[in-house]
Amino acid sequence: MFAVVRTGGKQYRVAAGDKIAVEKLAGDAGDTITLGDVLLAGEGDKMEDAGKVTVSAEIIAQAKSEKVTVFKKRRRHNYRRKNGHRQQMTLLRIVAVGDSKAEKKAAPKKEAAPKADEAAEKAAPASKPAAKKAAPKKDAAPAKSGTHETETAKKAPAKKAAPKKAAAKTEDKK
């Protein structure tokens, strides 16, 4: 099955297993995202309702595309400007192209098992007494709000003024 999706102002024809490079999307490598703007879907010559189809993809990496050199020049005016630019992009691997109803039915089954484990974990710690927190060190000064302790501890000492040189003798020439 294939689908045409729109992301980053561009359209891509994708199928399960394809790898594509798109404009930067939020997320880290390994995250799974859903490309929601499906324009067209089908299999072979048969077209399906694009509203019922979802495309799920896995982020392979966040990278930069190739460098584009921008060079401006105005002849006979001694004007030259050279700039480079590398656009941020996301590499995606298309995991599945399919019916959104089928994926929604499969998702609760995966989530049902962890909920049972979480309930068991919540019940177990409740029976144990709560551990006491260690008292903070009294000799350490409290950190100011809005600053990190590492910033206050690693401040460089103030620089000393450079020693003054002896005044050079100046002779008045007349």
Rank of each mutant, 00 (worst) to 15 (best):
M1Q: 04
F2L: 00
R6T: 15
G8Q: 09
G9R: 01
Q11F: 01
Y12R: 02
Y12L: 07
G17C: 06
D18G: 05
K19N: 04
V22R: 03
A26K: 11
A26P: 03
A26N: 06
G30A: 11
G30Q: 09
D31L: 12
I33W: 00
I33G: 00
I33C: 00
V38N: 00
E43V: 13
D45W: 09
K46M: 05
K46H: 08
G51Q: 13
V53D: 05
T54D: 04
A57K: 07
E58M: 13
I60F: 01
I60Q: 04
A63K: 11
V68K: 11
K72Y: 01
K72P: 00
R74Q: 09
R76H: 04
R86T: 15
R86L: 13
Q87K: 15
Q87G: 01
T90Y: 01
L91T: 11
L92S: 14
I94W: 10
V97I: 07
V97S: 02
A102C: 02
E103Q: 15
E103C: 06
E103I: 15
K105T: 15
A106K: 15
P108E: 12
P108A: 14
K109E: 13
A116P: 02
E118R: 13
A120H: 10
P125C: 02
A126T: 03
S127K: 07
S127P: 00
S127N: 07
A134C: 09
A135Q: 05
A135V: 07
P136N: 06
P136H: 08
A140E: 01
S145Y: 06
T147K: 12
T147W: 12
T150Q: 03
A153C: 00
A158P: 02
K160R: 06
P163V: 10
K173W: 03
